[in-house]
Design a protein around this nucleic acid. Structure first.
Lengths: 105, 105
DNA sequence: CATATATTTGGCTATTTTGCCAAACCACCA
DNA sequence: TGGTGGTTTGGCAAAATAGCCAAATATATG
C-alpha cells in the first residue's frame, strides 16, 4: 500500500472513528431532525458537559457537524446529512448477525 | 436515555467501531469485489499475518464479513454489501471539510 | 463592574485498541 | 508419522480514547 493510498484510508477512518461511539451516534440522531445546543444534548445524554463538549469536538474535527454560536450558547447541526442514512445499513448488519446467531442454535 | 436505547446505540457503535480503522476499511474495499484469503490480504496490507487475522476477527465479530475455510486457507467475504456504499458519503464529508478549510484561508 | 449561565480546555486516571512475536492449530502431502 | 504452509491465539508493551473534575473563557444581565 503506497503512501497516498494509506493517507486516503486514514482520512476515511477518521470519519468512521468519529461515529464509532454510542454517545456520538445518539448526537447524530438528534441532529438529524434539527440543530441542538450543547445544553440540550447534555440533558438528554446525562453525562458531564465537558464530556459532551469533547464528543462534539470529535464530530466537528471529522467535518460531520457544524456549530453556530448564538448568544451564550452554541448550536450544533449535521453538516453531511447522508450520515444519518447509514442506520438502515447498520441495522441490516445487526439483523443479519442476529439471524446467524439464531441459526447457529 | 433508558437502557434499551443505550443498548441499541452500543450495538450500532460496535458496527461502526469495526470499520473505524484504515486497515479494516482497506479490507472492506478489497472484499467489495470478491472474496480473498487471509494470505492475499496480508500481502496487500504488509503487516504481520496475526495483525491482519485480528482485524478480520473484529469485522467478523461485528457481523460484517463471513469466512469460509477451504483446504488450509480461509476466505473472507463481505456479508453486508451496503457497507461498501458508505464511501461516497464519507468522501462527501471529506470534501465538505476540505472546502471549508479552503474557504477559511 | 459583578454575577450567573453556557461552553471549552487542561489535566489526570482508567480502559481499550493496536501490532508485534512466539506458540499453537489445522489441513495437506511426502 | 513428520514436515510444510496458512491461520489463529496468547501475551505483552505502546498508543489512543473516554470521562470526570477543576479552571478558563465568553456572553448576557443586574
Amino acid at each position: 500500500m503506497d503512501n497516498a493510498t494509506q493517507a486516503r484510508y486514514e482520512a476515511r477512518a477518521k470519519v468512521m472513528k468519529a461515529l464509532a461511539h454510542p454517545t456520538r451516534l445518539f448526537i447524530i440522531d438528534r441532529l438529524a431532525n434539527r440543530e441542538e445546543c450543547v445544553c440540550e444534548l447534555t440533558a438528554m445524554i446525562g453525562a458531564d458537559v465537558s464530556t459532551v463538549s469533547k464528543h462534539l469536538l470529535v464530530l466537528r474535527d471529522a467535518g460531520i457537524v457544524d456549530n453556530d454560536k448564538r448568544g451564550n450558547q452554541v448550536f450544533y447541526s449535521l453538516r453531511v446529512p447522508c450520515v444519518a442514512n447509514w442506520y438502515s445499513c447498520v441495522e441490516g448488519v445487526l439483523q443479519a448477525d442476529a439471524q446467524q446467531r439464531l441459526a447457529a442454535i
